[in-house]
Simulated scan of single mutants.
Amino acid sequence: MSIAIILNGISRKKKFFYKTILPALQKEHSINVFETQYAGHATGLAKAAANKFEVIISAGGDGTLNQVLNGVLSIEQNLPVLGLIPLGSGNDFAGAVGLTPRPEQMLLLLKQYKPQPTDVGFIKCHDSANKEKQHYFINVCSMGMGPATVMQMEKAPSWMGTNLRYLTSIIKTFFQHKPELVELKTQTWNWRGTVRVLAVANGKSFGNKIYLAPEAKQDDGLFDLFVAANVPLFRFLWFLQTLKRARKINDARIYYNTTDKIEITSEQPVAIEAEGELVGFLPATIRMKPGAVAFLR
């Protein structure tokens, strides 16, 4: 079995990977490690590896996995099996499917080798020049406070480190972001209003265990939708504590739904993010691709 690991080169757990995880895996398998050198590098590494390896394992957080996914799906056929060693700060998708950084778990998954069909979301949207753009995601994409936080992080100095940049960015977003007017359509639901957060989820949580979709499954062919309308700021902060406990919110301004396709429009330049990466802007169509990848989980 040919195995490639694509490692986030700036992961704070890189030493743990080389000291503990990799030696354990190398006792039973021949492993090729490709370490990212710059932002977005994992996509290119995954695309180059996709035709050469039977298994590609992402070693990093949700962002690294998102890049690996897009690199692998760019070849469209004879896809390798995907795996994940969660080394990020949030690891939301890993939490949804029960993965840990323990090498014993990955060794067992490789020994049993029963990759599971896993759903993937597919976004068609537009870039800042209004050109059509396409992007895959496996966990959550969102509009509202999510991309606003991503844009704040892009402005923050790199010396602050990921965790501090995220913390300061989300604080700024809470107090600066204004709810945005959107219109969404599914096969069974039309809705128009201002949103603090609109999330389209395949996984259960985003933003480091904020459970917008605690009942989501990764193989049912459906997105779980979460809409937080124009909720007063401090009420929304209160709601976040409920979401952190993986509980649904019972409030007239919070909406839950399911669909395999959603169309979202706005008269404003509303941004879209997926796994902490700015993807593009509305209008967008987001479709589910059932069982698009085989995943070790």
Rank of each mutant, 00 (worst) to 15 (best):
257 N>I: 06
79 L>T: 12
99 L>R: 15
4 A>K: 05
143 M>T: 05
151 M>R: 02
175 F>Y: 04
212 L>K: 00
22 L>E: 05
32 N>Q: 09
147 P>G: 01
199 A>C: 06
35 E>G: 08
241 Q>V: 10
163 N>W: 07
121 G>L: 09
200 V>S: 02
133 K>I: 06
83 G>I: 10
57 I>L: 14
217 K>W: 06
261 K>G: 04
287 R>Y: 14
22 L>S: 04
77 Q>R: 02
131 K>T: 03
227 V>I: 15
297 R>F: 15
281 F>Q: 00
294 A>K: 13
140 V>D: 09
76 E>H: 08
167 L>D: 15
105 Q>A: 10
108 L>M: 15
234 F>C: 12
172 K>Y: 04
118 T>G: 08
254 I>N: 05
57 I>W: 15
59 A>V: 10
224 D>E: 00
45 L>I: 03
165 R>P: 00
30 S>K: 05
266 S>K: 01
223 F>Q: 05
294 A>L: 11
297 R>D: 12
275 E>R: 03
61 G>E: 01
117 P>G: 07
270 V>Q: 03
7 L>P: 00
15 K>N: 11
124 K>E: 11
133 K>H: 08
119 D>P: 07
195 V>N: 02
238 W>P: 04
44 G>S: 13
143 M>K: 03
160 M>Y: 03
57 I>T: 13
45 L>E: 01
292 A>K: 14
179 P>M: 09
113 Y>K: 11
59 A>Q: 13
232 P>D: 12
103 P>F: 12
169 S>L: 01
221 G>D: 11
238 W>M: 08
112 Q>C: 09
186 T>V: 09
82 L>T: 12
179 P>S: 06
212 L>T: 04
205 S>V: 03
25 L>M: 11
245 R>M: 13
262 I>A: 10
190 N>S: 11
200 V>P: 02
283 P>T: 07
41 H>V: 04
105 Q>E: 15
47 K>D: 14
215 E>M: 01
108 L>R: 14
46 A>P: 14
295 F>M: 11
218 Q>K: 02
56 I>Y: 14
197 V>P: 09
214 P>L: 01
259 T>A: 10
77 Q>A: 00
207 G>H: 09
117 P>T: 07
129 A>I: 07
282 L>G: 06
175 F>P: 01
4 A>D: 13
74 S>R: 10
250 N>Q: 15
166 Y>C: 04
176 Q>Y: 03
200 V>D: 03
67 Q>E: 01
35 E>P: 08
68 V>N: 14
27 K>D: 14
249 I>N: 08
157 P>V: 04
117 P>M: 04
295 F>N: 10
110 L>F: 14
290 P>Q: 09
55 V>A: 06
47 K>Q: 15
133 K>N: 11
107 L>Y: 15
296 L>A: 10
119 D>R: 11
47 K>I: 10
242 T>Y: 05
155 K>N: 11
115 P>H: 10
125 C>G: 00
291 G>S: 09
103 P>W: 13
